[in-house]
Amino acid sequence: MSDKAIKFWGLLDLSFVAWYVVFSITNGRIPFWSDLLGSIAVSKSFGNLLPVFMSVTSIIFYVSFVVLGILLFRVKKPGVFVSYLQLPFRVLSVSPSMFFVVWPLKYLFVEPPLILGAILMAATESIKLFSTILWHRKHATICC
């Protein structure tokens, strides 16, 4: 697997964060800060800190996207390890690496089938995992 594939995954992670920032700004919100303030308001109304915890977790996740994106774009081996660690959290939070693959579904279906979105996400994450494993094996250092 070539370095270009690893750079591609890094670029996608950075693009995901950029998309979120631009989307927030164009909707009159301050990225991350508005989300945190909103979760604090919800926490106060329900008397539960879970929304704040989820918001902080989301912010940490976005920071990890930036770190991963930079590491992969610079073709650094730790980036591959971070992507391995991040995979289960991506799946649980439904944050696919190729975040744009589900957009066409809303134009093709009145109510997009959930299973189709899940299949697309599983496919993109499998492609990323497979390509990073191949790259990692190709660049493994032989010890002793």
Rank of each mutant, 00 (worst) to 15 (best):
87 L>F: 15
130 F>V: 09
118 A>Y: 05
135 W>L: 08
78 P>S: 13
100 F>H: 05
108 L>D: 01
90 R>N: 15
127 I>G: 01
129 L>K: 01
130 F>R: 13
74 R>G: 00
90 R>M: 14
109 F>C: 03
92 L>W: 14
103 W>A: 07
107 Y>Q: 05
106 K>L: 02
89 F>D: 12
73 F>Q: 02
109 F>D: 04
109 F>G: 05
130 F>N: 08
120 L>W: 00
81 F>H: 12
128 K>C: 07
133 I>R: 04
75 V>P: 06
128 K>L: 06
80 V>M: 10
132 T>G: 04
109 F>R: 05
93 S>C: 11
84 Y>D: 09
110 V>Q: 09
125 E>F: 01
121 M>L: 11
110 V>L: 07
83 S>D: 14
113 P>N: 03
76 K>L: 09
100 F>V: 05
104 P>Y: 03
122 A>C: 03
77 K>S: 10
100 F>E: 07
105 L>S: 04
84 Y>K: 15
128 K>P: 00
85 L>P: 03
106 K>F: 06
128 K>W: 02
131 S>H: 07
106 K>V: 08
132 T>A: 03
107 Y>R: 02
97 S>L: 12
89 F>Q: 13
88 P>F: 15
123 A>E: 00
80 V>Y: 12
112 P>S: 05
74 R>T: 01
80 V>C: 14
116 L>K: 00
134 L>I: 08
135 W>H: 11
95 S>H: 09
85 L>S: 15
80 V>F: 12
132 T>R: 12
75 V>N: 13
95 S>L: 11
94 V>Y: 13
123 A>L: 12
124 T>L: 03
88 P>D: 13
85 L>K: 09
87 L>I: 12
116 L>F: 01
78 P>R: 13
87 L>R: 13
98 M>F: 15
131 S>R: 02
89 F>E: 13
128 K>R: 10
91 V>H: 10
103 W>Y: 10
113 P>C: 02
97 S>V: 11
77 K>D: 04
113 P>I: 02
134 L>G: 06
82 V>S: 14
95 S>C: 07
86 Q>Y: 14
74 R>H: 01
119 I>A: 06
130 F>L: 11
106 K>R: 09
79 G>D: 10
135 W>T: 05
110 V>P: 00
77 K>A: 09
78 P>V: 11
129 L>T: 11
123 A>C: 04
110 V>W: 03
123 A>P: 00
121 M>W: 05
129 L>S: 09
126 S>N: 00
92 L>F: 15
101 V>Y: 08
135 W>A: 05
103 W>N: 06
127 I>W: 06
83 S>A: 15
118 A>M: 07
103 W>M: 08
89 F>I: 14
100 F>C: 02
105 L>W: 04
91 V>Y: 15
125 E>P: 06
94 V>R: 12
76 K>N: 05
119 I>W: 01
107 Y>A: 06
130 F>G: 02
95 S>W: 13
130 F>I: 10
89 F>H: 11
89 F>K: 11
124 T>S: 10
92 L>N: 08
121 M>I: 11
94 V>M: 14
100 F>D: 02
129 L>V: 08
90 R>C: 10
